[in-house]
Design a protein around this nucleic acid. Structure first.
Lengths: 113, 113
DNA sequence: CGCATATTCAACCGAATGGTTGACCATTTC
DNA sequence: GAAATGGTCAACCATTCGGTTGAATATGCG
């Protein structure tokens, strides 16, 4: 479990990867489509997706020559459970969250690191 | 905000730092006392605490020659809010969490990295 | 004052991270 | 079958990370 949290939090620590997760919240996507809004190479995105998959944050399924990426909430839930132990947080204001998402998606492709 | 999530998740990605946070859940502690259960050097722990403080996960206050470390739930809440946007997770079973904590604290000092 | 205690600083080290490029493999399409 | 498309692999590079050690800086105590 400790091992798992390591990889989950490490995966979440990168803004590109978080942006990818928020994109996948909209819909499942092929690797190439995930890469489209970013300025970095396809190989780099492919690596990021690999890290997300290792952490269990997404699953990848190959159908034909395209590999579909899909959000998998289990890992995030595990981390969330851990964090919530540190205090009972207020229920999330989903409007706030949507606004935040819109902003983060918008900024997704702009910078490398 | 994105910047902040970077440092928060990066801080949480290290098992030593998570163990420190769980220790601080019990009570505020001086740096030396935080270091006591670990096998690594005091300087290393001091660095870890600096990273936790930078991320806003703890605050440090110097009183006399001892620096007290105190959990600060705000940063964790910010990250938790972000994560909860990915799915409405079940309310946490606090008994489960306590059991998990006991286990993690126990194992805290055993390994370097 | 002089010594012990609490903590950080600085330099260093090996390993991991995030990115690049170019070659490669697999699948679909003409 | 040849060419285009989707994706990964491998080697490389600069930077960051997690740790070490030894010296330095406060602060408290007899």
């Amino acid at each position: 479990m400790t091992q798992r949290l390591d990889t989950i939090f490490a995966a979440l620590a990168d803004p590109t990867r978080r942006a990818i997760l928020t994109m996948l919240l909209e819909d499942d996507m092929a690797v190439t489509d995930v890469a489209e809004p970013f300025t970095m190479s396809l190989a780099a995105i492919s690596k990021h997706l690999g890290i997300l998959a290792d952490a269990g944050l997404i699953t990848q399924e190959k159908r034909g020559r395209v590999k579909w990426c899909k959000l998998d909430p289990d890992a995030m839930r595990a981390a969330s459970v851990w964090m919530q132990g540190f205090g009972q947080f207020d229920p999330v204001d989903l409007d706030d969250f949507e606004r935040f998402l819109a902003q983060e998606i918008e900024g997704a492709g702009e910078q490398g690191r």
